[in-house]
């Protein structure tokens, strides 16, 4: 058995050691990780993927912690990918989400939590998040939760990964809330007003509930009315209702073209990411080293034109070959 297959099998068998190490190699952009991911592909697609996003201070980690507890109570295993920002100055990061989840997860082999630093990726996620989700999926986790950095705007990447995006809001973010309303329908499948016992929670809830958010599906079918819920993650109030709402959305999208479109979008993103990495390693780095870069723009244009030309010829050649065979 080669190393790749062995690693993949270990992950599928549920080895935390191998899963943990594979995610590190993914983060570091290692080519051997791609091979393992490819072997894992047949084992992926079973997990329900939930994204949790919202502004800083909304209590996302605490909410995830509550979700873990609720899901475990229902007998489902849980994987978590929690993303925190990297420092733009040092490249280092403080990853504190895990700490808030320890109460609901400690000593439970049905829970796997992994913190990732964003490492400069925009959109509130780490570049490795998409693949890390696959690792936990392949490991056999029933549910994989992805918690974003929570930078307010630009949380759109999560919508491409998760089946259901939960947007966590809290009272007391008046202006931010106004600014976000426009974007809510683009990313949120479920809205939850956390810290429901704090002042202003009721009003925020009512205000949001009155909006009647809807998401339109890709096939022009019936829209999804975005539920607005109230919860106190700390007190574990409203968490069961939240899980029910997430499950309901999952069933709804599963019945429609939504799911197919989503799966396709993820596969597409993966194709682009893989191809991107490979092209960079195999072609771009060498090309950049080999060329005089006095005019970098011109050199790049020339290089890309060459590639396109070569690809066009290859395609034509293949088509010709196919024709000959048919005759």
């Amino acid at each position: 058995m080669d190393a790749t297959t062995d690693q993949a099998e270990q992950v599928v068998a549920g080895s935390a050691l191998h899963a943990g190490r594979l995610i590190t190699r993914i983060e570091n952009g290692r080519a051997d990780a791609r091979a393992v991911l490819r072997s894992l592909a047949p084992h992926c697609g079973k997990a329900q993927l939930i994204g949790v996003t919202g502004p800083p201070g909304a209590g996302k980690s605490t909410l995830v912690s509550a979700l873990i507890r609720e899901l475990r109570g229902r007998g489902r295993t849980v994987g978590v990918i929690a993303v925190d920002p990297s420092s733009p100055f040092s490249g280092g990061a403080l990853l504190g989400d895990r700490d808030r989840m320890v109460e609901s997860s400690s000593g439970d082999s049905g829970v796997f939590i992994r913190s990732l630093a964003s490492r400069g990726a925009s959109g509130g996620l780490a570049a490795a998040a998409n693949d890390a989700v696959d690792v936990l999926d392949a490991m056999g986790k029933d549910v994989v939760i992805v918690e974003t950095v929570g930078v307010g705007q630009g949380e759109f990447d999560i919508a491409r990964i998760a089946h259901t995006v939960v947007l966590v809001l809290v009272p007391g973010y008046g202006d931010a809330l106004q600014a976000m309303k426009a974007g809510i329908t683009e990313i949120a499948d479920v809205v939850v007003v956390n810290k429901s016992d704090s002042p202003g929670a009721e009003q925020t809830f009512k205000e949001l509930a009155a909006q009647g958010f809807q998401r339109t599906g890709p096939d022009g079918g019936p829209p999804w009315p975005v539920p607005v819920l109230q919860a106190s993650a700390l007190r574990h109030d409203g968490i069961a209702e939240l899980v029910d709402a997430v499950d309901e959305h999952h069933r709804f999208t599963g019945r429609t073209a939504w799911r197919t479109a989503h799966e396709h979008a993820r596969r597409r993103a993966r194709f682009i990411a893989f191809a991107n990495d490979r092209l960079r390693e195999e072609l771009l780095e060498t090309a950049a080293d080999a060329r005089a870069l006095t005019d970098p723009y011109g050199a790049a244009e020339e290089f890309v034109t060459e590639l396109i030309e070569a690809h066009r010829r290859l395609t034509a050649h293949r088509a010709a070959g196919a024709e000959t065979e048919q005759k």
Partner: peptide, 17 residues
């Protein structure tokens, strides 16, 4: 962090954690 490392901050109850 300022030395460029990624630091998972973690409060534990028992060593197994």
């Amino acid at each position: 962090r300022d030395a460029g490392m990624e630091v998972v901050y973690f409060r534990f109850g028992v060593v197994e954690e």
